[in-house]
Amino acid sequence: MTADVWLPIPPKEIEGLPEGLRYLFWDGGEDGDQEFPGDPADCALYVVPYMKRQPVLVRPLERMRNVRVVQTLTAGVDDISERMSLFPPGVRLCNARGVHEASTAELALTLTLASLRGIPNFVRAQERGAWASEFRPALADRSVLIVGYGAIGAAIEDRLVPFEVARVVRVARSARTTERGPVHPLTELPALLPQADVVILSTPLLDSTRGLVNADFLTLMKDGALLVNVSRGPVVDTNALLTELESGRISAALDVTDPEPLPAGHPLWQAPGLLISPHVGGPTSAFLPRAKRLLVDQLHRFVNREPLRNVILTTGSPNG
């Protein structure tokens, strides 16, 4: 029997899909109640819909008894990874490394520059018809700390270098050396945070990073420092951040929040020194071409029984 592949992009819009598979379109629908395109039990490879709520993403999983690969179109897999225990050994979960680096790095730089140069203040002044110039810090000559130095973290550094930053310090879960210099482990953050003018979070959401930016972390940031989060909302303790923002000691720019979506009336909306964007690091014109290329390559690998790209975990394995 031909194996089913569920795609959140209409198959006719993706050139180069390999033969030998039956491609079915399913993106969850507008309200998450779209009917399944086939029997989930016949699905061998499930490409998770993009930018849909978690209940939509996981709805078919319990019935996908024969799935062999779950492919996300996001860099983070926390919405799906906790459900992988539903499957027998050997099921692989893959992320979208290579798809979002450019867009997310662009946004990290945009939020950093907009916050430092006071762009939100200028927008508000424009709405009032007021010519309100002010002296603002530049990104040039600043020390930037990137927490989470994977593909996105490296892409952020690529974009920082032309802005003549004084120093880029890299932090990840474990130490290593790159062509650009050392990557420090998370355990060294207490010594590194007081030296940073800008702290950019691009780390995945894991047990070790959930609540990483807590009161102790924020207290170690220097006065006047900027925190930028393009990773996941729960990496930051929202109440601890609110306390620091309300004191005026630091500022922040968040593309992700906890909770998310941020409800109307939440204190973050009115917090001083805070710029919020609604989790738009990935959805740009750069997404679709890169997502299609990833899927075509991954499906050819799947059909030809070649090693898959971006395997985050395999059920039943020691690291799974």
Rank of each mutant, 00 (worst) to 15 (best):
V213C: 04
A108S: 14
S115T: 15
D79H: 15
A125Q: 13
L262D: 07
G38Y: 04
A154Y: 05
A75E: 11
R117H: 13
E13L: 13
R68A: 06
V230A: 03
T104C: 13
A108K: 01
R170A: 07
I9K: 13
I312G: 03
P49N: 09
H100D: 11
A291R: 12
P8M: 09
A44P: 10
V161F: 08
G90D: 02
R305N: 12
G90S: 01
D27A: 09
V168E: 00
G233S: 11
Y23N: 00
G148Q: 13
S251Y: 00
V56I: 15
E82G: 15
F217V: 01
I312V: 15
R128I: 03
L111H: 09
P318M: 08
Q270E: 14
A125M: 01
Q34A: 15
P10R: 10
M84G: 02
R170F: 08
L245V: 04
G150F: 04
L262A: 10
F287I: 11
R53S: 12
A151M: 10
T209R: 08
W26I: 01
V144C: 09
D79L: 13
P190A: 03
P49R: 07
D223L: 00
E188Q: 11
E30T: 12
V296T: 12
V123L: 14
L189R: 09
E13V: 02
R63K: 15
N229Q: 11
P234R: 05
G282K: 04
V236G: 01
L218C: 08
I276Q: 04
C43M: 11
A291V: 06
G233Y: 06
A166G: 15
P49C: 01
P318E: 10
L227K: 01
Q195W: 02
V171N: 12
Q126G: 12
Y149W: 09
P37L: 09
P259M: 08
Q270M: 00
L245R: 02
I14L: 08
F87M: 06
